[in-house]
Amino acid sequence: GIPATNLSRVAGLEKQLAIELKVKQGAENMIQTYSNGSTKDRKLLLTAQQMLQDSKTKIDIIRMQLRRALQ
Rank of each mutant, 00 (worst) to 15 (best):
T33Q: 15
Q71L: 11
G1Y: 06
V10L: 07
I61T: 09
L21H: 02
K22Q: 07
K56F: 04
L17A: 00
E14R: 14
R42S: 14
P3C: 15
K40P: 07
G26Y: 14
V10W: 02
N6G: 09
L21Y: 06
Q71T: 08
T33L: 15
L17T: 00
L13N: 00
T33A: 15
Q49I: 15
G12A: 15
N36I: 05
E20G: 01
T57E: 14
G12N: 14
N6Y: 02
I31T: 01
S8E: 13
D41F: 04
L46V: 09
Y34V: 06
P3Q: 06
E28W: 06
T57G: 05
I19G: 03
L21Q: 05
T33Y: 14
L52W: 08
I62V: 02
R63D: 03
R9S: 10
N29M: 10
K58C: 06
I61P: 00
S38Y: 08
M30W: 05
L70V: 06
G37S: 09
S8K: 08
L44H: 05
R63H: 04
E20T: 04
N36D: 09
D60R: 14
R67A: 13
N6V: 05
R68E: 14
E14N: 08
Q25E: 12
Q16P: 00
E20D: 01
R42F: 13
A48Y: 09
Q53R: 11
Q16H: 03
N36E: 14
Q16F: 03
I62S: 00
Q16Y: 03
M64W: 10
Q71S: 11
L52Q: 01
R68W: 10
Q50C: 11
Q25H: 05
D60S: 14
M64T: 14
L17F: 01
S55T: 09
G12H: 14
Q32G: 03
D41M: 02
D54V: 09
E14V: 14
K22V: 07
N29W: 13
A69L: 15
L45E: 02
Q16N: 03
N29V: 10
A4I: 12
A18L: 09
L70T: 05
K56S: 08
Q49L: 14
K43F: 10
L13Y: 03
T5R: 07
K15Y: 07
L7N: 07
R67I: 12
D54S: 08
A11N: 05
K58L: 04
K24M: 12
I19E: 12
Q50M: 10
S38L: 10
V23M: 05
L52P: 00
Q16L: 11
E20R: 01
A18C: 14
A69T: 04
R9I: 14
L70H: 04
K43D: 12
I19K: 09
M30R: 03
Q53L: 07
E14F: 15
T39D: 10
D41G: 02
I61H: 11
R9P: 05
V10N: 02
D54H: 06
D54L: 06
L13P: 00
Q16A: 11
T47E: 14
K40E: 11
K24R: 07
P3V: 06
L17Q: 00
A27D: 00
L7G: 09
T33H: 13
T39S: 10
A48G: 02
D54R: 11
E28N: 02
Q53E: 13
V23Q: 06
R68D: 14
L17V: 01
S8N: 07
K24D: 00
A69R: 02
M64Q: 11
L7Q: 08
L52D: 01
T39Y: 08
T39H: 09
L46E: 14
E28V: 07
T33I: 15
V23E: 04
N6S: 07
R63I: 12
T39V: 09
V10H: 03
I2K: 11
L45F: 06
M51V: 07
Q65G: 03
E20C: 13
I62E: 00
E28D: 02
Y34M: 10
Q65N: 05
V23L: 09
Q49A: 04
M30H: 02
Q16E: 08
A4N: 13
D60Q: 10
S38N: 10
D54C: 09
E28C: 09
G1D: 10
L70G: 05
N6H: 10
L52V: 03
Q25Y: 06
K43S: 11
A18Q: 13
Q49F: 11
I59C: 02
Y34Q: 04
L66Q: 01
S55I: 06
T33W: 14
N29F: 13
A18S: 06
A27M: 07
Y34L: 15
Y34K: 03
K24A: 08
I2G: 12
G12V: 14
E20H: 07
L45W: 04
I31A: 02
Q25W: 07
R42Q: 14
R67F: 11
Q32P: 02
A4D: 11
D54N: 08
S55N: 01
S55W: 01
I61A: 10
Q50E: 07
M64S: 10
L52T: 01
I19A: 11
R9Q: 10
L13D: 00
D60A: 14
K15P: 00
Q50K: 11
T39I: 08
S35Q: 12
L21M: 11
G26A: 14
K24S: 06
L52F: 04
T5I: 09
P3H: 10
A18K: 08
A18V: 06
Q71Y: 06
R67T: 10
G1V: 12
R67D: 09
M51S: 03
G12K: 15
L7I: 09
L46K: 08
L21D: 01
G1Q: 10
T39A: 10
I59A: 02
E14Y: 15
K58N: 05
R68V: 15
I61Q: 08
E28I: 11
A18Y: 07
R67L: 09
I2C: 15
R68P: 02
L52R: 02
N36W: 04
I2F: 11
T57A: 12
E14C: 15
R9G: 05
Q16K: 10
I61W: 13
V10T: 04
K43T: 11
T5A: 11
Q50H: 05
G37A: 08
V10P: 01
I62D: 00
A11R: 09
E20M: 14
G37C: 13
L45G: 01
E28H: 03
K24L: 11
K58M: 07
D41Y: 05
Q32F: 11
G12W: 15
K58Q: 05
K24P: 00
L13E: 00
I62L: 11
S8D: 12
I59V: 03
A18H: 05
E28T: 03
L7E: 15
Q50S: 05
S35K: 09
Y34D: 02
T57I: 14
R68G: 07
I31H: 01
M51R: 05
Q50I: 08
L45S: 01
Q16D: 04
K15G: 03
G37Y: 01
R67Q: 12
I61V: 06
K24C: 12
I62T: 01
Q16G: 02
G26R: 14
A27K: 01
A11Y: 06
I62C: 01
M64L: 12
T39R: 06
Q71M: 11
M30E: 04
R42D: 15
K22E: 08
L44Y: 04
K43G: 09
Q25P: 00
G1H: 12
Q53H: 09
L45M: 05
D41V: 03
G12R: 15
L52N: 00
S8R: 07
T57V: 10
K43H: 12
L46S: 05
T33F: 14
S8W: 02
N29Q: 13
S38K: 09
A18M: 09
